[in-house]
Every structure is written in structure tokens, then in C-alpha cells.
Design a protein around this nucleic acid. Structure first.
Length: 217
DNA sequence: TACTAGACAGAGACTACCCC
DNA sequence: GGGGTAGTCTCTGTCTAGTA
């Protein structure tokens, strides 16, 4: 199973709770917004993660017992959790630019310094360049045995990787240009949008839900 | 190859709210 | 008031990576 995804999830949870405390349901929505382009997060993944973070003292759970209804548990970050989040964000090792973690690391780029951002972007780019070489070599070797659909799929894959490399190169250049003007800048270079949980409506409970059907009991 | 532990998905329990 | 829906969380079976 994926330990690397666990790190991405841990980072996503800590990062979101650093913005504001929230309960499990809201957290799941937010995490899915953050990581949802890969896979949706289920409760069976989220709650064990929250429990583990609680055991480690990174988060605490406040139970809302006053409401009279079923207790709603609000999770919030502790001082230790903030420290741990800072450590995770400062990590620029290979895991920071692998497929599982890069997305969530990128989503929290605004909380890191420019040298960290550049290092992760460069690492990601070199990883993709390596992958591009491998795919090109494999394509050359097996081209005769492929049907037209497989070739199309391979072409699509190559183009996607090339596009991402171009995008990363642009980001690195912008990041360096911004760093030249403001060496300790922690804000993203112009033209780069980052995910900010502040822009979302935490804790907002909609009056009416969408038409998702629920299984009968 | 077989076994094990942990990660995971998703069903379902439970409660409150909404609307007819 | 009752049925349907929404929100929250737990539980259980399945899957998979790691190890002997």
C-alpha cells in the first residue's frame, strides 16, 4: 500500500487544519478538493489518519457536546502539529516531487520559501525528464508491436509529460526572477495561483444538498 | 510463495433537519 | 408526524507492499 500517499494526506490534513479547525466531513471535502484529481478520499482513510495524528499529538479533537445532538468532533492543530507541518513543508527530499506528493506540496507552496519551491520544482522536472526518456525509449523499441490505439495512448502520455516539463520550467524561471527582486519572498510569483483554504467556506453547512442519492437502510 | 500488517473503500448506523 | 435527505462517524472486508 502507499505510505507515500499517507504523507501527502498527513500534509493535506495538517495544512488545512492550520487554516482553521474543522470536522471530519468538512475536512474530507477540502482534502478531496486538494487531492481529488488523483483519487477521492474515503472516510475509512481519513479517520484512521486523524486518529494517528491525534495519537502523535499533532491535532486534538474537540467534541461539541452542547448541541444536544450527536457529538460533532472538530479537529484542530496543536503547537506540535504546526511544528511538524513546518518540518514537512521544509522537506525537499525526493518524496516531495513524486507523483503522490507533488500536488499537495504545490498546493501549499505559498507557505514555503522560494529556495524550497525551486528545489522541489527542479526535482519534479528532472524526475519527469527521466520518465520522458524511458517512455521514448520504450516507444521506439516496441513501436512495431503496437496497434494504433496504443500508439495514440503513448503519444498522449508523452505530450502530457512534455507539457508538464514546460510548465515547470516556466515556474522555475518566474520563481528565480521573483527571488532576485525579493530574496526572502514567500509569496508565489505573479501568474501562479495557489490553493488557499481561506478562500473556501469552512464550516458552512448548506441548507440543501445536491441531488446525491443515499442508499436506503 | 505464503503470510502479515496496514491502508483503503464503502456500506451502514445514528442523529438532526427539512418539507409536505 | 413521518418520510426523505444531509452530516458524521464506525466497522468490516478487500487489497497490497513488505518480509520470511
Amino acid at each position: 500500500m502507499s505510505r507515500r500517499r499517507g504523507v501527502a494526506l498527513e500534509l493535506a490534513v495538517l495544512g488545512l487544519l492550520a487554516d482553521s479547525p474543522m470536522h471530519g466531513y468538512e475536512l474530507r471535502k477540502q482534502v478531496n478538493g486538494l487531492l481529488g484529481w488523483t483519487r477521492l478520499l474515503s472516510y475509512g482513510t481519513l479517520y484512521p489518519c486523524l486518529k494517528a495524528l491525534g495519537r502523535q499529538g499533532y491535532i486534538v479533537a474537540d467534541e461539541d457536546v452542547d448541541s444536544g445532538r450527536r457529538a460533532k468532533i472538530t479537529y484542530r492543530l496543536t503547537a506540535e502539529g504546526k511544528e511538524h507541518l513546518a518540518e514537512l513543508l521544509a522537506d525537499t527530499g525526493p518524496s516531495a516531487w513524486d507523483d503522490e506528493n507533488f500536488g499537495v506540496r504545490f498546493a501549499f507552496f505559498s507557505r514555503t520559501t522560494s529556495p524550497i519551491r525551486v528545489r522541489i520544482l527542479e526535482g519534479r522536472r528532472s524526475r519527469l525528464e527521466e520518465r520522458l526518456d524511458n517512455v521514448k525509449n520504450a516507444a521506439q523499441r516496441g513501436r512495431d508491436r503496437m496497434d494504433s490505439y496504443t500508439r495514440e495512448l503513448q503519444r498522449h502520455g508523452l505530450e502530457s509529460v512534455e507539457r508538464e516539463i514546460t510548465w515547470l520550467t516556466e515556474l522555475i524561471e518566474r520563481e528565480r526572477a521573483a527571488a532576485d527582486t525579493a530574496p526572502e519572498a514567500t509569496t508565489p510569483p505573479s501568474g501562479v495561483e495557489t490553493t488557499s483554504a481561506d478562500e473556501t467556506d469552512h464550516g458552512h453547512r448548506p441548507k440543501k444538498r445536491s441531488s446525491t442519492t443515499r442508499k436506503k437502510k
